[in-house]
Amino acid sequence: MNKQIRKIAKKWYHIILMLGVVLMLFPFVWMLLSSFKTEQEILFVPPTFFPKSPTWNNFVSVCNRIPIFRYFINSVLVSVISTVCVLITSAFAGTVFAKYDFPYKNTLFMIILGTTMVPFECYMIPFYLMISKAGLIDTYTGIIAPLVITSFGIFLMRQQAGSIPNDLMDAARIDGCNELRVFLNVVLPLSKSALAALAIFSFMFGWAFFVWPLIITNSSELFVLEVGLTMFQNQYTVEYGPVMAGTAISVVPLIIVFMFFRRHIISGMAMSGMKS
């Protein structure tokens, strides 16, 4: 009897979890299904779940109206370049903070960590004025500028480099490596997993970055996906079919990437929680 009650109790909590899963996934499923519905069907009351006569029309109409693939490439460019910059700056600075001595090291590190407490929104106005003075408004450099360093990256790489034994680095020095070689041949190969986590983190951050590209880009050729999509839904707000199709184009690649790299992405993002 007791056993049975326990079994049921166990099932009950899975039912709640499953309900949660439905709530989490439903918006995406609904968006995908809707993007294949015809203009009339999408406004049916009561709505249909599966499209009656699936059509690509919405996708065609998105591609005709906005250069969505250009937006996509812009997003890829911004995210990839900023990720590469973050990896380079964080790996070098983190290693030096962990393994080298110089005056005011700890003060400097505290200042760098302190800047994480200040969200970008809190200094975007002077940043905008600075970028505009430099003539970088409406350029890729302007979009990427705030993304080339992150304190979290330096922190993570400092932890990582700190775990590498000094003897290993000294051995490389005895073998005639200069400091740059020690960095490239000893530190980097041992930091692969941390670098991968950092890459995931900064790629996602760059991809989802919204306020700044919204402010800094005026010409449609430079819109990143997020900005382009916002403008599109703003213009065609009642045409849910094409809007959903555009959203689907922007979301499906991310879902696929997430499916394949779920473990890495989740643990990479979780690592950002370690800094406490």
């Binding site: 949660g20 968006m31 919204f210 999509l229 809007v243 959203t247 992405i265």
Partner: peptide, 24 residues
Amino acid sequence: FYEFAYFLPFVIPMVPVSIIWKWL
């Protein structure tokens, strides 16, 4: 599987998510 489902909304950027919810 639960982890996948619950984490998915966080992975997808805010703009498409907001557009979908606007329609819901």
